[in-house]
Amino acid sequence: MDRLHKAIPLALAAALLAACGNNASQDKKQKAETKPVAAKTEPVDVAVLGIAKPLTDKPGDPVNGRKLATSKKKGNCLACHDLPDVHFAGNAGPSLIESMQNNDRSVGWIRQKIVDPKVDNPDTVMFTFHSNEGKKMIRPDKVGTRVLDAQEVEDVIAYLLTLREKK
């Protein structure tokens, strides 16, 4: 495939290089998939390992999780990620079908990604779904709410894990 180089502003390119040590002009999907999950030789990095403990005591409901992930008002994950049986999914993020089937991200890492994806990648395009820390200029009608509340995060994770089981 003839992939054209795109001009990434210098500052952004520098940030990308610093963040993952990858060639900035590389395919975005590649970048996401090849980024190291806590390499074994490195000191334990809580941020990279993620949030091991579920946010609630109630187990996640995968059926509701699918609803949330595919609804425009809630998760809207399909705006950027391919998911099974959806139309017109975006591709700003990696396919979650492939991602769930082909890699060994820990559940804690996935939870971290949904709670606050900036921890893993400061320059991420992904929205911050649960943490509200440091958010600026929130629309007044959304102040004091979360995009996905704690149980909803658990539901979405439960749904994503069903994709993993299909392997």
């Binding site: 990434i8 975005k28 017109f88 591709n91 991420t124 395009v125 629309r139």
Partner: peptide, 24 residues
């Protein structure tokens, strides 16, 4: 600058994600 409930800046959609699809 990241802003809003979604916590995302113009540059993320319009530069980082240029050449991709956000929904349609």
């Amino acid at each position: 600058e990241r802003i809003g409930h979604f916590d995302i800046a113009c540059k993320h959609c319009h530069n980082t994600a240029a050449g991709t699809n956000i929904r349609a």
